[in-house]
Design a protein around this nucleic acid. Structure first.
Length: 192
DNA sequence: GGGCCGATTGTT
DNA sequence: ACAATCGGCCCG
C-alpha cells in the first residue's frame, strides 16, 4: 500500500474520547470513516453531520438505563453502537463517555454518494447490527475512524436534532455549513 | 404474550 | 400526510 494511503487510514487517537459527548460531536466533522467490505474493498468518507446523545437526555436510547440494546453505550468510548430502526434501517453511532457512563454520537451523513442520511449511510456501506461493538480506533476492524479535518473555509452549523418527539429544544446537531451531503430535515414531529 | 412506537426515508 | 416494516421495551 502506498505511504500516503497508509497514513490516510491510520486510526485517530483515543485521546479525543476524554472529552464530553457534546465536545466530541462537532470534532468528528471532517474526520474520515473507513469501511473494509467483505471483498476487501475500502470505502472512506468524511463525516459531515453528527448528533450528540447523552445519558440524561430523554431522546437517548440509554436514558432508561442498561438494556441489551443500550449496554454498549455504557461501555468504554470509541466503539460502534449500531441499532435497527423503523423495521428497515440501521444507524451508526460512536460511543462516548468513560466506562460506566452512557453517551454516543450519531453519524448522520458522510461525504459519499448515497450516504446523505443515517439510514442511507448504513445501507450504502453495508453496516448492520453485526458491527455493533466494533472498535472504531483499530484499522483491523471492518469499520474505523481515521484522521481528517475541516477545510479552512468550512464552518459548523448548530441546529436541533432530527426526527425526535422529545428534547427538540436541544441544539445538539452539528453539520458542515453548505455541504451538499448534509441530510435534509423533513416534517417536524409533535411532542407527545 | 400484547401492543405501541421509533435517532428514517420516499411517495402521495 | 402517510406507508413501509419489525425489533425493543414497557406493561401486566
Amino acid at each position: 500500500m502506498a505511504k500516503g494511503q497508509e497514513s490516510k487510514l491510520k486510526p485517530i487517537s483515543r485521546r479525543l474520547f476524554r472529552d464530553s459527548t457534546l465536545e466530541i460531536a462537532p470534532k468528528l466533522l471532517g474526520i474520515n470513516l473507513c469501511r473494509r467490505l467483505d471483498d476487501g474493498t475500502i470505502l472512506t468518507g468524511r463525516i459531515v453531520e453528527a448528533e450528540a446523545y447523552t445519558q440524561d437526555d430523554p431522546a437517548c436510547h440509554a436514558y432508561r438505563g442498561i438494556t441489551p440494546r443500550s449496554k454498549i453505550m455504557y461501555g468504554p468510548p470509541g466503539f460502534a453502537y449500531v441499532y435497527f430502526i423503523y423495521g428497515m434501517y440501521h444507524c451508526l453511532n460512536v460511543v462516548t463517555e468513560a466506562d460506566g457512563t452512557a453517551g454516543a454520537v450519531l453519524i448522520r451523513a458522510l461525504e459519499f454518494d448515497g450516504a446523505n442520511g443515517p439510514g442511507k449511510l448504513c445501507r450504502q456501506w453495508q453496516i448492520d447490527k453485526k458491527m455493533n461493538g466494533l472498535d472504531l480506533l483499530n484499522s483491523d476492524s471492518a469499520l474505523w475512524l481515521s484522521s481528517g479535518s475541516l477545510q479552512i473555509d468550512e464552518t459548523i452549523d448548530i441546529t436541533p436534532r432530527i426526527g425526535l418527539s422529545v428534547a427538540q429544544d436541544k441544539l445538539w446537531r452539528f453539520s458542515i455549513r453548505g455541504n451538499k451531503f448534509v441530510s435534509k430535515s423533513s416534517s417536524k414531529k409533535q411532542p407527545r
